[in-house]
Amino acid sequence: MAIKKIGSQTIKLFNPPSIISTSTIVGPKEGDGPLSKYFDTILQDDLYGEDSWEKAESKFIEEAVKSALSKVRLNLSDMDYLIGGDLLNQLMSTSFAARSLQIPFFGIYGACSNSTEAMSLAAMLIDGGYADKIATTASSHFSSAERQYRFPLESGNQRPLTSQWTVTGAGTTILSSNGEGPYITHVTTGKVVDFGIKDAANMGAAMAPSAVDTIKTHLNDTGFKPEDYDIIITGDLGILGHEIAMEMLEKEGYNMSNVFKDCGIEIFDNERQDTHCGGSGCASSAVVFSGYLYEQLKAKKINKILLVATGALLSPTSSLQGESIPSIAHAVTIESKLRN
């Protein structure tokens, strides 16, 4: 019997795993943004000494995992699993990083929801007694994403005003069955939601309904209210998507005004850095959590957050075939201390 399941889509973990370490690595544009002081490594060269964007992204993951482990004096061999994903076909950057990391590996694809999808699965594996220590990763690279989904970098076209800027970077978390927190206490797994948006340059609007669906379900399942959280933060809805999600939630009677934020808005200074609608990509939620939010939780400046990474599950093929954009959002509750 699923004794840990509460409500329709949520799990309350009996032995909440602790996030014992994190690490982040970001590109120059992210390093120039308002959260720069929270990142471990800021690259000046977004090729990272490699000869392709994909290899650079792979190295981000490798180095981020190693750096997170070295912070708590653990070795690669101490890890039971590596769970992670990126945006590229066949999970190129994550799979190739896993090739050198040599940790038993689950590759996942939830587009930009990878970070919380990985954390959800890792938390459940540890709570279920199948593992003691798991590394999760999520990464994206502006240049590898552009060439797969959009235009060559040197192409002289205009980006639509609704478009978002793919975050270059990787974030990793190390989860352990024992530790002093912050703890993952609840996991709400999203359903695929599609409100018929077809414009691949407006992913905020495509993903907003999925974030709303998951947040509503989470609050219903757990009985929490928005004000029980210090922050409810989505992954990469961007400026437009955030506004839409906020209005949709308020229409349903949830008062989100003081707690609702978005990693894609936080990571860039939109006016100065000219991103149009903010940041996007797997790394958006991964580096904002592993850098900024983790530090705030550790320092107990905030005590309880709901991290809701959002993913647009389109592919270049589905867009060409005229399909709308299916979206998903996965939520995890992270608390700085456990209360009974």
């Binding site: 005003l161 409100f195 018929g196 948006i197 609007a205 437009l240 839409i244």
Partner: peptide, 17 residues
């Protein structure tokens, strides 16, 4: 119907060049 009204709503919010 839901998709149609959502599309209309989104179009009203999209920043205009």
């Amino acid at each position: 119907n839901r998709n149609k009204s959502y599309e209309k709503y989104v179009n009203s919010k999209v920043p205009k060049p």
